[in-house]
Simulated assay, not measured.
Amino acid sequence: MKMTVPTMLTLARIAMIPILVVVFYLPYKWTNFAAAFVFAFASITDWLDGWIARRYHQYSAFGAFLDPVADKLMVATALFLIVQSHPTRWMALWAAVIVGREIAVSALREWMAELGQRAKVAVASVGKIKTIVQMVAVTLLLYQASFFGIPVFTIGEWMLAVAALLTLWSGYEYLRAAWPSLRAQAVQPGVDSP
Rank of each mutant, 00 (worst) to 15 (best):
W51D: 11
S170P: 07
Y28C: 13
A92C: 09
G156L: 00
Q117V: 15
F148I: 15
A186W: 00
G100Y: 01
I19A: 10
P189E: 00
A40D: 08
G149M: 06
A42K: 01
T139N: 05
T7M: 15
F37Q: 04
G50M: 06
S43N: 06
T167L: 02
V38Y: 00
L175R: 11
T31S: 13
T88F: 09
I98C: 03
L140D: 02
M1T: 14
R109Y: 08
D46E: 06
R13G: 01
P180N: 09
P68C: 06
P194E: 11
P151E: 08
A113R: 09
R118F: 13
A95H: 03
I150H: 06
A96P: 05
A61G: 10
V126H: 12
V123L: 04
A96W: 05
L108W: 05
V126T: 13
G156M: 03
P194D: 12
G100F: 03
T139W: 01
L165F: 13
P87R: 04
I44Y: 13
T45K: 01
P18F: 07
E173S: 14
L11F: 12
I155A: 04
V22A: 11
M16S: 12
P189N: 01
A137K: 00
A96N: 06
W158G: 12
V75I: 11
A137C: 02
D49G: 05
V133S: 02
T10G: 05
S181H: 12
Y143K: 06
G190Q: 00
H86C: 15
Y28E: 15
K130S: 01
R109C: 07
A122S: 12
V21R: 03
A164P: 00
A15H: 09
M8H: 11
W169Y: 11
V21D: 02
F148Y: 13
E157I: 12
A184L: 09
V123E: 01
Y174W: 07
K130Q: 00
L140I: 08
L115K: 10
F62A: 10
V23H: 01
P68G: 06
R109V: 08
V126I: 14
K2W: 15
S85I: 12
Q134N: 08
M135L: 13
A124F: 12
V191T: 12
M3W: 15
K2F: 14
V97A: 02
A64Q: 14
E102L: 10
K72A: 06
K72Y: 09
G149Y: 08
L115Q: 11
E110W: 15
V133D: 02
M16N: 08
A124I: 13
G156H: 00
Y25I: 15
M74Y: 05
A96G: 09
I52L: 10
E110H: 14
A119D: 15
T154C: 11
A161V: 12
P151F: 06
A92V: 06
A124D: 14
F148P: 10
P87Y: 03
I14N: 03
F62L: 11
R176W: 14
G127D: 00
F33Q: 14
E173F: 13
Q117L: 11
I132W: 10
I103F: 12
A184C: 09
D49P: 05
A186T: 00
V97C: 02
T45G: 08
W30V: 13
A78V: 07
S146Q: 14
T4K: 05
T7H: 07
M74W: 04
